[in-house]
Design a protein around this nucleic acid. Structure first.
Lengths: 154, 154
DNA sequence: ACAATTCAAATGAAAATGCACTTATAGCCA
DNA sequence: TGGCTATAAGTGCATTTTCATTTGAATTGT
């Protein structure tokens, strides 16, 4: 049976910027996240892997920030990823409070493999837009990020 | 002590559309989510409340989709929100598989109160951009949403 | 009318997350 | 130097989410 939508015109959320952004992010990533799910890799693990590509060693807090997770969540995620051999932790030379997180060889292999798939997916996404718009999208997002980059730990 | 960033130029993630969108969504919503946290309201609860504004009754699956949650997550969230008196469930007249979810009076009061705060926050956000860009943002997001609206349950 | 299929919602056990707090180290400055 | 504050990471428990499955109802095809 057809389930009718409510009679009202526009829902609150359909004209609400924060929601439009969240929805766009969710929708745009859903196809790639589906690929991850098929491979048995969680979004959080993929974010850590991708955040470590090309890095000599990130801090736990820095990774948490980059991956949009809280620090204790990251600590526990890194515990699991260490157990499964994707990353390694080592003490920072200069500051003994700091832990440096790196990809292992296996982690790098997985990260680079997934990054290829991610870039291929991105190309597909952008191909669905007229070239001028595709160009504009990333620039606009970078503008948003720059303008709303709020002071650390508000 | 200053923690130096890695020597490399641009991180993979900083030129990856899906990440830019996720980060923008996260960053833009963080201030409002902070307001929610102060009031002891979770993001998920706010999403359900805002999704029900002006509605005669949404389905559980429809709400889950609108709130970017999975259906079992929504069922349990609605259990809690029902217990705390924010929403009510009632059987659909035409299709007995379907449950219609509505705001209670208390839920509507909270939803409308928060929606005011959300719109005020949105106005602040948009004020940080030049008017032409502010105008462009929502349109671009709607364009993205329209182009990547994928077939239900792929 | 009836089996087979599809669909909506709920359930249960396992895993992940959030929050407040602890521990250890570093920076500051009198 | 000694003590105060700030910062990085880890911990424990309660809460929430996920995944796979179940239940009940509607639709489809014969």
């Amino acid at each position: 049976m057809e389930i009718p939508s409510p009679p009202s015109g526009v829902r609150f959320i359909d004209d609400y910027l924060v929601y439009l952004l969240a929805r766009a992010a969710h929708q745009v990533s859903s196809e790639f996240h589906e690929q991850l799910r098929r491979r048995g890799i969680s979004v959080a693990v993929w974010r850590v892997l991708s955040g470590l590509i090309g890095s000599e060693g990130e801090t736990v807090t820095g990774l948490a920030e980059a991956c949009l997770l809280q620090q204790p969540t990251m600590t526990k995620l890194l515990d699991r990823m260490t157990r499964s051999g994707l990353v390694s932790r080592s003490p920072d030379q200069r500051d003994r409070r700091v832990v440096r997180v790196c990809l292992t060889a296996a982690g790098r292999a997985m990260a680079e493999d997934l990054a290829l798939a991610a870039k291929a997916h991105e190309a597909e996404l952008l191909a669905r837009h007229p070239p001028a718009e595709a160009e504009a999208i990333k620039n606009l997002l970078r503008s948003i990020l720059a303008r709303h980059d709020r002071p650390r730990r508000g």
